[in-house]
Design a binder for these strands. Sequence first.
DNA 1: TAGTGGTCTAGACCACTTG
DNA 2: AAGTGGTCTAGACCACTAA
Lengths: 233, 233
Amino acid sequence: MTSTTIKGFAALKDEVRRRVSSREWPPGSFIPNETDLALEFGCSRTTVSRALRELAEIGLLERRRKAGTRVALTPVRKATLSITIIRQEIERSGKEYGYLLLDRQQTEPPVLLQKLWRLDAGVKILNVKSLHLGNARPFALEDRWINTIALPSALGADFEINNSNEWLIKNAPFSHGEISFTSKSSTATESNYLDVADGSSLFVVDRSTWMNDSPITSVRVFYHPGYYMKTTI
Amino acid sequence: MTSTTIKGFAALKDEVRRRVSSREWPPGSFIPNETDLALEFGCSRTTVSRALRELAEIGLLERRRKAGTRVALTPVRKATLSITIIRQEIERSGKEYGYLLLDRQQTEPPVLLQKLWRLDAGVKILNVKSLHLGNARPFALEDRWINTIALPSALGADFEINNSNEWLIKNAPFSHGEISFTSKSSTATESNYLDVADGSSLFVVDRSTWMNDSPITSVRVFYHPGYYMKTTI
DNA sequence: TAGTGGTCTAGACCACTTG
DNA sequence: AAGTGGTCTAGACCACTAA
């Protein structure tokens, strides 16, 4: 092996990717350790370490102390999705954003949410239903529950003009959250708001956020038929 | 400000997250530069740099040279999804994996794929349709196109027992790919294979992979109704 | 126990971008 | 022009774990 000089961790990542995809380093095989690679590429071990660490983070390599680094046997590639604000998503696609408040009331949440948030039966919290429009056409239907116990200021918020999505971003920080994606047939109500045929197939995103064990908000967004989320690996 | 001693970049990340979520550093505000933070936390600038870089990668901070680092105004949180092999996904949920080859033929691909792969009209490539089962129940329907021009060895592969998914992992490395998620009403054929009512709402994943500008495979997977993908932010 | 990755340091230089 | 982040280095010690 002649020693190739590689500039920087990014170039090193590319070279490793090349060796993996060219089967020079086949799946499951161990690759040289950091020290040897640093020698071969004429850079410091720190640089090699960063390159390999980042490749391990996306699932291309597997690393274990003492054992070494090897090419992942089953490429569990990780895709990253940008969870944007709906307004931005609409505006980025070149459409004019519009917003409609459909309903806003204090009411008892569904049982699933009561359990998730550990609420006593009968406790009422804020429910906001709204519609996001792209060029005046329905883009997504939002059904949001806001924990007014942890966030009493939400009771005084006006969701007529500013949507609840953005009000929360400004007023309700969160420490962590959970997102899940699924698909669902539209009910009569959903079909009506989204202006689609009954039983249409909708892309659904559920998101819940917490602030240190205290639930903040839980929202379900129904996207119009034809909507898709895209990413690269 | 008293100087707090923080151990390691991970603890530093936690502290920054805390300051952001507690509004000590509100959205849009600039935070101290790396040198000052290193002083405050009693660690090296390198450590601060790594912590802030990783927080910027997930969208919590925004960094620009000369301007400085600030808390993201619009929290475009990035969620990472693990794209696993279907077999693993089924087995991980405690079900027994099963596989059925439905169809396998050389045929002309749909126009969309012809354009994506820049194929001349009339060119025939390999199409494999199969069903992944969980406890003998339909879990996902797979419709795969394999570029037999770039990958002639696929013609000799037997997809009766080993599924094409795993054959490709072993035999067809890729350099990059694209994934998109959407939802779709099931057609008669899809409903039949998945054993669901016609017009059911299916979660659909489209994935295409390339090896240096040469298309390798393009696959569409229809999941059974009720399927969902989950992640955390 | 020995070998590997994981992290940290202090310092240096570079690249970018704002004023 | 100057200040900020981005990267790299050489060396050190630590943490984990396979043998």
